[in-house]
Amino acid sequence: MSATMERADFDLIASWVQPGERVLDLGCGDGSLLKRLIEERGAKGYGVELEDAEVLAAIANGINVIQGNLEQGLAGFDDQTFNHVVLSRTLQTVRHTERILSEMLRVGREAVVSFPNFAYWKNRMAVMAGRMPVSEDLPYEWFDTPNLRFFTLLDFESLCSKMGLVIRERQVLDDAGRAVVEEPNFLGSLAVYRLGR
């Protein structure tokens, strides 16, 4: 994904973190977001990452990274340890969707979830033209994608409702990282939610 888009996503998350707060970033990669939250926002950050190369990069970045598999939940993390638990562009790769959302709100007071919106108009156009979408926010071919779940803003909000999760805030971005206000399920490429119980 492009650096521009990465920043647009991270800008929002950074704006929600207050100095001194504890953040857990699930699927933290090389720790870029955490590094920013630590350096710019004075947060206390931890990350969870599965891939060896990313863990290595995160350690090189001085990040408190914990190697582990999100599919196994967040066993070992105590209840309500974090102010924010972030799952950035990763929910679509997780098999146990409901469990990870529940776990996020078990260990944290707030879950921050971002994901690519499958109903974005360009994605719809691609499917209408008979092809699976490849875009800024869905940058993989169907045969090499790590994404397991394809869903839309409406789908996600329906799941939140079913699980009794409260949507505290929703921000939607187009594929240039610009805020979308009107028709977000059609014009939004990436959605970022703040969830609570």
Binding site: R22, K44, Y46, V55, L56, A58, I59, I63, N64, V65, I66, Q67, G68, F77, D78, T81
Partner: peptide
Amino acid sequence: VHNGQDVAYA
């Protein structure tokens, strides 16, 4: 992590 101490785990 519970204590908010600095730790990385591989």
